[in-house]
């Protein structure tokens, strides 16, 4: 498969160094960078969850942002409007997102390709429009701000560590899913749905399950978005955000495991640091994207993976001689 194998080569060493750096980061870096890292972690969970359905499932999940928003709004509403203990919200967020994913997916998987995407966009926009206008419940276009968090998540360093742990758990879980028989079947369905159906695989059930898993993780990302930003607003469910998540996957590489993380990191840093110098950072993003689509359609990680593979093959060929 085209996914990068974590067990081989220098990757474990690189990962350990990266992890050590991230654990030590709050001690050495200013609070602003810790905040940016937290945003990147949350966005990375979101991008990876989308990659499960689009990159590995081959489905046109055009409106993934809605499930992110549902997760965030569920937690925000439980924290602000009810007396339930906070942990209920942290569980209800992803579960509600997964439920919405199941319900929307149920209608969408009957359709193929572009029609799948369009039905999802219309259902997602419906949820967005209701959120945007329901002032009494969701705060309408203002959203909800200044959400009080439980003690363990107050303070930027503590929430940073919690999100780092959550990201690691999500990464391990998604990696297991990719390597599981289910993940392999999903990729087989992406590459040849007719043949998979012919050998007795229930294509739609697998796709639906992939959507449910992905929307669950999107809900996790949404819940921790609230932890980082302490606010929710309807733009979380706007279709532009959904396309931005897709762009992260494209930047990093569709078919790789860690590509979306890199894509999320690039996107968040670009928005933050280019946004300081110019208000036209989307212009820069657009130009980068066009260059990428023309010259590097596999994404950055995909490109690296391709190079590594080529070198491996070359070495093997030399051994044979």
């Amino acid at each position: 498969m085209r996914a990068i194998d974590f067990q081989k080569g220098r990757t474990p060493i690189f990962n350990s160094i990266l992890l050590a750096f991230l654990i030590l980061a709050p001690a050495v870096l200013p609070a602003f960078y810790i905040y940016i890292f937290s945003v990147i972690f949350v966005t990375a969970i979101l991008a990876m969850s989308l990659n499960l359905v689009v990159g590995h499932g081959g489905l046109y999940q055009f409106h993934h942002g809605v499930f992110y928003g549902i997760g965030a709004y569920t937690l925000a509403l439980i924290l602000t409007k009810t007396d339930l203990p906070p942990w209920v919200g942290f569980i209800a967020g992803p579960v509600c997102a997964a439920l919405a994913g199941w319900l929307i997916g149920l209608f969408c998987v009957r359709l193929s390709r572009l029609y799948f995407g369009m039905l999802q966009i219309s259902l997602g926009s419906l949820i967005w429009a209701v959120t945007f206008r329901w002032y009494a419940l969701t705060g309408g276009d203002d959203g909800i701000h200044g959400i009080e968090l439980p003690g363990i998540l107050s303070g930027i360093t503590r929430s940073y560590y919690v999100i780092l742990i959550v990201l690691s758990v999500c990464l391990i879980a998604l990696y297991r899913i990719y390597k599981s028989p289910f993940g392999i079947t999903l990729r087989a369905i992406r590459d040849n749905p007719e043949r998979c159906a012919a050998v007795g695989i229930n294509v739609r059930r697998h796709q639906l399950l992939a959507i449910v898993i992905a929307t669950f993780f999107a809900g996790v990302a949404g819940v921790f978005f609230v932890v980082v930003e302490r606010s929710v607003f309807p733009d979380l469910m706007f279709w532009v955000l959904s396309l931005e998540i897709m762009i992260m996957c494209l930047l990093g590489g569709w078919f790789t495991f860690s590509g979306p993380i890199l894509g999320a990191a690039i996107m968040v840093s670009l928005r933050t640091f280019a946004g300081v110098y110019t208000e036209y950072w989307t212009l820069i993003l657009g130009v980068i994207l066009i260059l990428l689509i023309f010259f590097l359609p596999e994404g950055v990680m995909g490109f690296i993976a391709l190079k590594l593979k080529r070198r491996e093959l070359l070495l093997e060929a030399k051994k044979d001689i």
């Binding site: 689009v54 046109y60 390709r113 572009l114 396309l243 897709m246 762009i247 494209l250 989307t282 212009l283 993003l285 657009g286 130009v287 994207l289 066009i290 689509i293 359609p297």
Partner: peptide
Amino acid sequence: REHLMLLLFTFALMLI
């Protein structure tokens, strides 16, 4: 190119 690529390409153009 496939539709997804074209969609993202036109999105880039929209941003620009």
